[in-house]
């Protein structure tokens, strides 16, 4: 799928043409540099490698610096590969991308759907009610006492005499890759590399996002 790397900037709301107040997320997407083309012959799979967000040379390892030097670009913080990239709009014309090309928000069209994946906000150690959507024991009476958010039974007794693997329990929640599918691209602003996506996207402000069309 064709896509771009971006950064979540925050949320706001705009008014649609009908005057409706639409919540939206502002995403800085690209410009990304094509740093490598993976080919079937050499790498065993086909993909396009994009790099985004400049970083200082002193924070770059020598192998990384060599990789970026091949396409004569500055070192970048985030590298992502996209399968089935296909033809993309580069400098106003549709063509197969080449190493060194710049992919911008122009690959998106206003009003189309996109998928956004990012790393969700970390929630720390959470109980089963928040982590797995259990309802807890919802009775305050009938003999219940401090059981409102408890998981309940973990299984049967003498058979199987153990707790099955994968039983949903409390633990670390959040801070994992989440993909939101079928979000609407409301606006594309090429001059400041911005995308406006309807609704919310995973992660805190400033986190990296992968936006696929």
């Amino acid at each position: 799928m064709q896509g771009i790397i971006g950064k979540k900037l925050g949320m706001t709301s705009i008014f649609s043409a009908e005057g409706k107040n639409i919540p939206c997320t502002v995403v800085e997407a690209g410009p990304c540099v094509v740093t490598q083309i993976r080919t079937l012959e050499k790498d065993g799979y086909e993909a396009v490698q994009l790099a985004y967000d400049d970083k200082k040379e002193k924070h770059t390892t020598k192998p990384e610096a060599g990789h970026f030097a091949k396409t004569k670009t500055t070192p970048k913080k985030k590298i992502v590969e996209f399968r089935d990239f296909g033809q993309a709009k580069v400098n106003g014309e549709y063509k197969e991308v080449q190493p060194g090309d710049t992919i911008s928000v122009e690959i998106f069209i206003e009003g189309e759907w996109c998928d956004v994946s990012g790393k969700s906000k970390g929630k720390g150690f959470q109980g089963v009610v928040k982590r797995h959507g259990f309802s807890g024991v919802n009775d305050q009476t009938h003999g219940q006492h401090n059981r409102n958010r408890a998981p309940g039974s973990l299984g049967a007794s003498s058979y199987p005499s153990r707790v099955f693997k994968g039983m949903r329990m409390g633990g670390h929640d959040g801070d994992k890759t989440v993909k939101m599918i079928s979000l609407r691209v409301l606006k594309v602003i090429p001059e400041s590399n911005l995308l406006l996506i309807k609704g919310s996207v995973p992660g805190p402000k400033g986190s990296y996002l992968i936006i696929e069309r």
């Binding site: 925050g10 706001t12 705009i14 008014f15 502002v26 606006k187 602003i189 400041s192 911005l194 406006l196």
Partner: peptide, 14 residues
């Protein structure tokens, strides 16, 4: 630059 403000200035008429 505050890009959120850029967006708001562009799409919300004050």
């Amino acid at each position: 630059m505050d890009y959120l403000k850029v967006v708001e200035d562009k799409f919300v008429e004050k």
